[in-house]
Design a protein around this nucleic acid. Structure first.
Lengths: 338, 338
DNA sequence: GCTGGCACTCGAACGCACAGAGTGCCAGGC
DNA sequence: GCCTGGCACTCTGTGCGTTCGAGTGCCAGC
C-alpha cells in the first residue's frame, strides 16, 4: 500500500497535469503544493509511483504524467465529486425549465452539459422499456389504412402506418381503441405483450385479421423503439484536446458517429451511481485516449436513460462528475413534473 | 475575357490542387495535362490569372492555388455535374428503400450523403410550411386535458398537450374533431389560420373557450414547427481537412453546432437548382474556409426542404454536386411513395 | 528517512547551409 | 504577336550541429 504522502504526490501530479497539460516535475510540484518535503524526496516517491504503474515519463528527463491506472486511483480514492456553485445550479434550473417538450429537454440538456464541462456531451432519450403507456390512439386514414399513435409517460410519441388486410369499420375501431387502452394504459411496455395477446379472439372473425395486424405493429414498435436514440453535442470541444490532435480526434469523432458504440458505452455504465471509464477501460479502441463519465437519470426513483460526457483522460474529474450528476438530477426533476 | 487556354489552365490547376492538396507549379501542370504548350507559356497565363484574382501564391516561389473567385469560375463555367455511376445509384436506392419512417429516411440520407461525398452532410427535415395536413386528431386524456396530434403529408407527426379552461364533453370533442378535419385536411399549413378562424362561433358558449384554446395551440404548432429541424453527419470527415487543421476545424465544428447558422445557410440556397457557396460567399465567418453545396428536395415537384454538404473549398465540385443531386432526387421519390 | 549536491540525459530551440521547386523576365524564333 | 528556352533569383523545407534547460537518478551526509 502506498503511503499517505505518496498518494498526496499522485493527487498533486494529476491536478497539475490536468491544469497545465504538461508533464510535471518534482521541483514544480514542491513549489505549487505544500507537501512539506524537498524535491529529492518527491523524486523518490515518483520513482515508486512509476514502478507501481501510476505515472509514466513520456521520455527520460521529462516530467511525469498520470497513467490510466493513476487516474483510476485518483478517481476512486483521492477525488471527491465537486458540487456546483449555487449560481451554477440556478443557471441549470433556469435553462432547463424553459423547455417546451421532450425534444427540447434533451436538446437543452446536451447543450448545457457540453457547456458546463467543456467536453462532448451525450444524452440518451428516455428508454421505452421502462416507460409506461399513457395512451394508444388509432386513427382511420382510409378505409383500410390506420395510423397507430403511442404516447408514453415520458412524453415520447411514436407513430406507425398500418395497412389492414380488410376494411375496418368505425365501430370496430372505436371498440379496439377502447379495449386496447383499458388494458395497457399505465402499464409498462414490457408487460404489454402479455396483456393484449388474447384480444383478437374477442372480435368478429372478419375483424380478427386487422386486430392481429394492429397488435403486431404495436408490439413491433415497442421492440424497435427499445433500440434507443441519443444525441450528442459540444464536439467542437474536441479541438481543445491536445497538441497532436489530428490523430487523436479522428477516431473519437468516428466513434461518436456510431450510435451503436455510444449506446453500448452508456449501456455499460451501472444503473445507479456514477460510472467513470478511463482510457483503455473503454472497450472501443477509438476511445482509448478518452474517459467517459456517465450516470443514469429518470423521472422517478428509477433510471430510464443515461447521460454523460466524453473527454480526454486528462480531464477535471471532480468538476466533470459534479456537473454530470447535477444535470442528471435536474433533468430527472423536469421529466417528473411534465 | 480569358482565352480558352487560360480557362483550361485554371481548370487544370483546380483539378490538380483538389487532388494533391498542394500548390501546383507550371512544370507539373504541363506534365500532367496535355496543354500543348511549354511551362513558360503556362507561367505567363498563370501571371494573368493571378492578376485577375483567380489564383494566388501562398508565398513567392511556391505554386499557385485557386482563390474563391477561381473556384467560382470553375463551378460556373468549367465544371459539369458528374453523374453517379449506376452501381452507385443502385446502392443509394437500396439503402434508402430500407427506411421504415421519416426519422429513418432522414437518418439514412445524412449517412449516405456523408459517405458518398466524404464530407459533412446536412439534411433538413421536410418543412411544415409547405406541407399539407393529412389529419388532425384530438384525444381526451382527462376531463380538462386534451392532446392534439397533427399529421402531415410528409409523415411528420407533432403532438401538444392542451389544458382546457373548462371540461369538454365527448360529443363536443367529436364535433370539433370532425369540423376541424373537414376544413383543414389536404390544405396547406399556411392556409389553416384563415380556414379555422370562425370555428369558435359555431359552438355553444360554454365550449368556445376550449375551442379557442385548441385552435391557438394548433396555430402555434404550425408556426413553431416552421422553425425547422435538421441533422448532420460525417463530422469525422473534417479530420481530412488539411494540415493546419486545428485552427481550421474549430470554427467549422462550432458553426455546425449552431442549428440557426445551418438553417440560415440552407435557407439562403435557392429553391430550385443547386446552390454552391464558396468560401467567403458564406456569410458565417467560421465557414469562410468551406464551401456549401445545397439543393432542395421534395415529394412532388416542389421543394419542401433542403439538404447539402459542407466541405473544404478545395473539394471535388463535380462529384459532390452529382452526389447531392442524386441523393435529393431519391429522397424525393421515397417521400412521394410513403 | 529526508536532504542537498552533482553528473547525466534528452528534448526543444536556434542558427546555418543547402537543395529544390517555382517564378519572372528576357532575348530569340516561328 | 505569341510561344519558347534559358537564366538568375527567391523562397521554403530539411538536415545537422550546438546550446540551453528542465528533470532525473544516485549518493553521501544529517
Amino acid at each position: 500500500m502506498l503511503s499517505e504522502r505518496r498518494l498526496e504526490v499522485l493527487r498533486a501530479i494529476v491536478q497539475d497535469y490536468v491544469g497545465t497539460e504538461e508533464p510535471v516535475g518534482s521541483k514544480a510540484l514542491t513549489e505549487r503544493h505544500s507537501l512539506g518535503v524537498s524535491p529529492a524526496t518527491v523524486r523518490n516517491d515518483m520513482a515508486v509511483l512509476e514502478d507501481e504503474g501510476f505515472i509514466a515519463q513520456p521520455h527520460t528527463s521529462a516530467g511525469r504524467i498520470p497513467t490510466d491506472k493513476g487516474y483510476r486511483l485518483f478517481v476512486d480514492k483521492l477525488a471527491g465529486v465537486k458540487p456546483l456553485s449555487s449560481p451554477e445550479r440556478r443557471a441549470i434550473q433556469n435553462f432547463l425549465d424553459g423547455a417546451v417538450d421532450l425534444d427540447d429537454v434533451v436538446g437543452r440538456t446536451v447543450r448545457l452539459l457540453a457547456q458546463l464541462t467543456r467536453q462532448v456531451a451525450v444524452v440518451q432519450y428516455p428508454s421505452l422499456t421502462r416507460s409506461t403507456v399513457r395512451h394508444v390512439e388509432l386513427l382511420s386514414l382510409a378505409p383500410a389504412r390506420l395510423m397507430l399513435v403511442l404516447i408514453t409517460d415520458t412524453g415520447r410519441v411514436e407513430q406507425r402506418m398500418i395497412d389492414c388486410p380488410a376494411p375496418f369499420g368505425d365501430t370496430s375501431l372505436a371498440d379496439l381503441r377502447a379495449r386496447l387502452n383499458s388494458r395497457v394504459v399505465g402499464r409498462r411496455f414490457a408487460d404489454v405483450p402479455r396483456l393484449v395477446q388474447d384480444l383478437p379472439e374477442s372480435f368478429e372473425t372478419e375483424d380478427r385479421g386487422t386486430v392481429s395486424t394492429v397488435l403486431s405493429v404495436l408490439l413491433e414498435t415497442l421492440v424497435e423503439e427499445t433500440e434507443e436514440r441519443l444525441i450528442i453535442g459540444g464536439t467542437s470541444n474536441l479541438t481543445r484536446f491536445g497538441h497532436d490532435f489530428p490523430v487523436m480526434i479522428r477516431p473519437v469523432l468516428e466513434a461518436l458517429e456510431e450510435q451503436v458504440v455510444l449506446l453500448k458505452l452508456l449501456g455499460e455504465a451501472t444503473d445507479s451511481g456514477m460510472t467513470v471509464r478511463i482510457g483503455h477501460e473503454n472497450a472501443h479502441e477509438g476511445l482509448n485516449a478518452t474517459s467517459v463519465v456517465a450516470v443514469g437519470y429518470g423521472s422517478g426513483d428509477e433510471a430510464v436513460a443515461k447521460l454523460g460526457v466524453v473527454g480526454p483522460t486528462r480531464m477535471d474529474y471532480p468538476g466533470t462528475m459534479g456537473a454530470v450528476r447535477a444535470v442528471a438530477r435536474y433533468v430527472g426533476q423536469i421529466l417528473a413534473e411534465s
